[in-house]
Computed example of a mutant assay.
Amino acid sequence: MNPAEEYILEQQEPFKSILLQLQTIIEAVVPDVEMLYKWRIPVFYSKGISICYLNQSKDYVDFAFWHRKQIDKYQEHFVLSNRKSVASLRYKSVDDIQDDVIVYVLQEQLRINTSPYAVIGKSRIKKK
């Protein structure tokens, strides 16, 4: 078992069930997805580019992703928490998960298909 799987399976309920449900949706939507353990949390990659990550924090699970400014729908669901480039959807129970929102966000991340670090880096480069 890899460390990302261990992370999910070691969580207390209801967080373990939330994480497993989100993992299932991600794996169903993202072709050739790879779940790695980075920053001590599960991070999902497609073609070497990070798509999203999962993090159990306090009393919720964060489904976090980059490129939020390029996503048109469901903005009212996003939690920004003073972040510049990452947004998340937060879940306190499996019943809170809305598959259509997650599927849309994942499809948009795949459409954008750019390394979040490249986008962040480009915004910091000053033009002369």
Rank of each mutant, 00 (worst) to 15 (best):
N2H: 05
N2P: 05
P3V: 01
A4I: 07
A4E: 15
E5T: 10
Y7K: 12
Q12F: 13
Q12N: 06
E13I: 10
E13N: 05
E13Y: 09
F15K: 07
F15Y: 01
S17E: 04
L20K: 15
Q21K: 01
L22F: 00
A28Y: 00
A28G: 11
V29M: 01
P31V: 06
E34R: 07
L36W: 08
Y37V: 02
Y37M: 10
Y37P: 02
K38E: 12
K38V: 15
R40I: 06
I41S: 14
P42W: 06
V43R: 12
V43I: 14
K47H: 13
K47L: 05
G48M: 08
I49D: 05
I51P: 07
I51W: 08
C52F: 09
C52K: 09
L54E: 10
N55A: 15
N55M: 14
Q56P: 12
Q56R: 11
Q56A: 15
Y60C: 06
V61S: 04
D62G: 15
A64H: 04
F65C: 08
H67K: 00
H67T: 05
R68C: 02
Q70H: 01
I71V: 08
D72V: 03
Q75V: 13
V79R: 02
L80R: 14
S85H: 11
A87V: 10
R90K: 15
R90H: 05
S93N: 13
V94G: 14
D96H: 10
D99Y: 10
I102M: 07
V103T: 14
Y104G: 08
E108Q: 13
Q109R: 07
R111S: 02
R111K: 10
I112Q: 00
N113V: 00
S115K: 15
Y117N: 14
A118W: 07
I120Y: 07
S123K: 01
I125A: 04
K127W: 03
K128V: 08
K128E: 01
